[in-house]
């Protein structure tokens, strides 16, 4: 299916729930409201003409005023793609989890939570995956400031120039 056909199929099915497309993207990108994400996702997977059976990537983008949760979908049968985007609030980003539809989303959503702080509602085990469990802040947000130290390990990046001359691992 071409991009237009996929878009038409989705618009026919959901109408107003499809908020629009993102023209700056080279792939077909569909913006959806967070309330309808689960319904649309399930349709994308189960509809025989779409059959997006492979979830490729869940990621996030911080646009300083909002955080986008981006889902990249592939179809192994029809060899077409779709990008689903959900806008989240920047202060307390929330988005429904699609783990129940594609298990692949599990780790990707944990990573996006880890990096952007998007709370994926309905995720079975939403804990940090790459950073340490007690890490503070969400590193990939544009307003993120690296902490001065972590468990006594100084942040050399911010202390460049005033690093102690002698490194004493025991003291």
């Amino acid at each position: 299916m071409t991009s237009e056909e996929i878009l038409k199929r989705l618009q026919d099915q959901f109408g107003e729930a499809i908020l629009g497309t993102d023209d700056s993207s080279l792939n077909l990108t569909v913006k959806v409201a967070s309330e309808t994400l689960l319904e649309i996702s399930r349709f994308c997977r189960d509809d025989s003409s779409l059959s997006f059976d492979l979830l490729s990537l869940v990621s996030g983008v911080d646009w300083t005023d909002r955080i986008e949760s981006v889902i990249h979908l592939d179809s192994t049968a029809h060899k077409h793609h779709l990008v689903l985007k959900v806008d989240c609030d920047h202060e307390s980003p929330r988005c429904p989890s699609v783990v129940e539809i594609w298990n692949a989303a599990d780790w990707h959503e944990r990573e996006t939570y880890d990096m952007f702080g998007i709370i994926y509602e309905g995720h079975p085990n939403l804990v940090r995956i790459l950073c340490a469990e007690d890490w503070e802040g969400y590193p990939l947000r544009k307003d993120y400031l690296m902490p001065d130290e972590y468990h006594g390990i100084p942040n050399d990046f911010q202390q460049a120039g005033k690093r102690p001359q002698k490194y004493n691992p025991r003291g």
Binding site: D22, S24, L26, T29, S56, L57, S59, V83
Partner: peptide, 21 residues
């Protein structure tokens, strides 16, 4: 230019995708 793209290649381990904004 301004925009975004997602491209996958067949890495020896699987599909390596780059999502670039």
């Amino acid at each position: 230019k301004k925009g975004e793209s997602y491209l996958k290649v067949e890495n020896p381990r699987g599909e390596l995708g780059y999502y670039i904004v």
